[in-house]
Computed example of a mutant assay.
Amino acid sequence: MTDRLDWASDAIRLIEQDGAAVLVTQCIVDGSAPREAGTKILVSKSKILGTIGGGNLEHQATMQARRMLERDDVTHLLQDYPLGPLLRQCCGGHVRLLLERLDARDTGWLEHIASMAEQPGEHVLETRLDGTGQRKTLYRRKDWPHVLKTGFLGHDASLLPDNRPARDVCAVFFEQVSALPPAVMLFGAGHVGQAIAHVLSISPLPIRWFDSRPDYLGTRSGIEISHLTDPEEAVSSAPPAAIHLVLTHDHELDYRLTRAILQRGDFAFCGLIGSATKRARFIRRLREDSVPQAAISRLTSPIGLPEISGKAPATIAVAVAGQILQITGDAVSADTPRQASNASVLRA
């Protein structure tokens, strides 16, 4: 888990299963550390969800969380870990962890946070450490007065200047939480489409998958494949700033999809599988159909990172996933998969 809100529904599920869970947030990082600030894990008596980088830090944090599960009189702890001197980890930085014990008494605000997980936009999550208000409150980023991604406020609501201020003066921890990750519109369920869907299925990116062939419908890699009957309508149904990947079995269908995406204009990425010859033919037709040159120039074809060569479906899928990572940043590398695949990262 990273700096998004999808941990809240997982916390509710673990509370229902095990009675309580501990949310561990790596809130401050000084120097080198295995993961960045905002990374989270959830720990219950039987399961761990997510990772803060593994190694001795995660081991110690997990043991601390399990000790907290045995006590219902402790709501939170701030714990500092110098990775080199204390934990003998070679990265040698210093991290501060916030551990929060969650149980049935917390389901109200957890449900509210979970309901906001699919809302677009930048927000700031405030966690009160002094017990004077609701445990966590979500603010719109534009309404938050401070520019830091994470930090601590004192008891007078002022920003504490030190990166790791004394723990007894910390009244509030705040962290920016990122916008809803872009949707992937995947057109084509052949060998390459299946490989791409398989790779992306362990990412948090919401995926909408289409194919025009009835025999290819169903569910693969935990993703339902919808029947593509009207390409223009399918493109118009996409959310704004979506990532479009066009790789059907039919060049004419590819063209209609590509034209509709470029004409719509509000996409984050329009990728078309194929050769340089196919790209040239499509561009000529797009110009003949009066698609603006500014939109045509945003077409990416062939797709995939050029440094990763090869035509095998798995190779193409890895190259395309890397290309999407460049577009989306941390969203595609987060440790919490989409809900359909959550079971794959729960471990005893």
Rank of each mutant, 00 (worst) to 15 (best):
A65P: 06
A319G: 04
R287L: 13
C27E: 11
A157M: 11
S158R: 13
K136L: 14
A157T: 10
S203G: 01
G218H: 09
H251A: 14
Q176A: 11
A317Y: 01
E111V: 09
A189Q: 06
L78N: 05
A319E: 07
R167E: 15
T229S: 10
H249A: 14
Q323N: 04
L346W: 15
T219D: 06
Q89N: 04
P182W: 06
L257T: 00
M68K: 01
S32E: 12
E118V: 04
S275T: 13
D80N: 14
S290Y: 11
R285Q: 15
T62A: 12
V318H: 07
G271F: 03
E100M: 09
D6G: 02
R220S: 15
D330Y: 09
R71E: 13
V74A: 07
G329Q: 09
D250M: 10
V345Q: 07
S237I: 01
Q263R: 13
Q26A: 03
M116E: 15
L99N: 02
I28V: 15
D103R: 04
K47I: 10
T39V: 13
T229F: 00
H249W: 01
G218L: 10
V177R: 04
R285S: 10
R88I: 05
L228F: 09
L346M: 12
E307A: 15
A65F: 03
L42M: 07
I48D: 07
P214N: 09
T150K: 03
Q64C: 10
A197D: 03
L159D: 08
G54D: 11
G50Q: 08
L305E: 08
D143A: 12
P145T: 10
Q339H: 14
A189L: 03
S44A: 03
E224V: 12
D80E: 14
L138C: 07
L160R: 03
H227C: 09
A319I: 01
P239T: 13
M1F: 06
D266R: 08
